[in-house]
């Protein structure tokens, strides 16, 4: 399998914008103007101010700004299913992973139907090309089952993940891999499920923010 075949040219590579400089210490969002590094962004302040969500996700590291160019690449990768594009990010992810400590690494899962449709999980593909030994500790809760819950239940507790291997989690630092950190909802839900199941700490790494 050829992973090294040049996937994007130098000038395209330059269109990837690394997140540098001042950023939110929790979610990697670039901070503008008067906030300085080490502070939390507005989003994270809100999450952490909410008793139901505070203290679950320790931190998220993102590599790139989700600019127009990266949007195109990610769309082609995820929705067109061009698996090969994952390898663009591997050297960057490798470099980042050197500084992250964890006991167990896992990926945000896709639903079974989605996986059968796309043929691969975009986060898992990254982990596989990185040579990481991931453990599937999360599954998506069936959306059909979810729709059977009362309306109130769904709104109050939009639970999406179910922990499978509970015995592996106690006292472990978990690293979760996903492709994009947009609102942070997905990762915070995963973190909450994992911590409730006994994980010591949950952090995440994503391609873009």
């Amino acid at each position: 399998m050829r992973v090294d075949a040049k996937l994007i040219c130098k000038s395209c590579d330059e269109k990837l914008e690394r997140i540098t400089g001042d950023r939110c210490s929790m979610c990697s969002r670039g901070l503008a103007g008067n906030s300085s590094s080490g502070e939390l962004c507005f989003d994270c302040l809100r999450w952490e101010g909410n008793g139901e969500w505070s203290g679950y996700l320790s931190n998220n590291i993102s590599l790139f700004h989700y600019n127009e160019y990266l949007k195109e690449i990610i769309a082609k990768y995820k929705y067109r299913g061009d698996y090969a594009l994952a390898s663009i990010f591997i050297p960057y992810l490798k470099e980042m992973l050197r500084d992250i400590e964890y006991d167990l690494v896992t990926c945000i899962p896709l639903s079974v139907e989605r996986l059968k449709e796309r043929g691969f999980n975009q986060a898992q593909a990254l982990a596989d090309l990185l040579g990481l030994r991931t453990i599937e500790v999360l599954t998506r809760i069936d959306t059909e089952k979810q729709s059977k819950k009362s309306r109130h239940e769904r709104i109050a507790l939009p639970q999406v993940f179910h922990v499978t291997k509970n015995d592996l989690l106690p006292n472990q630092s978990i690293l979760v891999i996903d492709d994009i950190y947009t609102t942070g909802t997905t990762l915070r839900q995963a973190a909450k499920a994992l911590k409730k199941a006994g994980a010591k700490e949950v952090s995440s790494i994503t391609l873009c923010r």
Binding site: Y83, A84, G119, F120, A125, D128
Partner: peptide, 14 residues
């Protein structure tokens, strides 16, 4: 490119 395909559950080339 060959990848581990979850549709056919084997290495699959596209």
């Amino acid at each position: 490119y060959t990848f581990p395909c979850k549709i056919c559950d084997r290495d699959c080339t596209y």
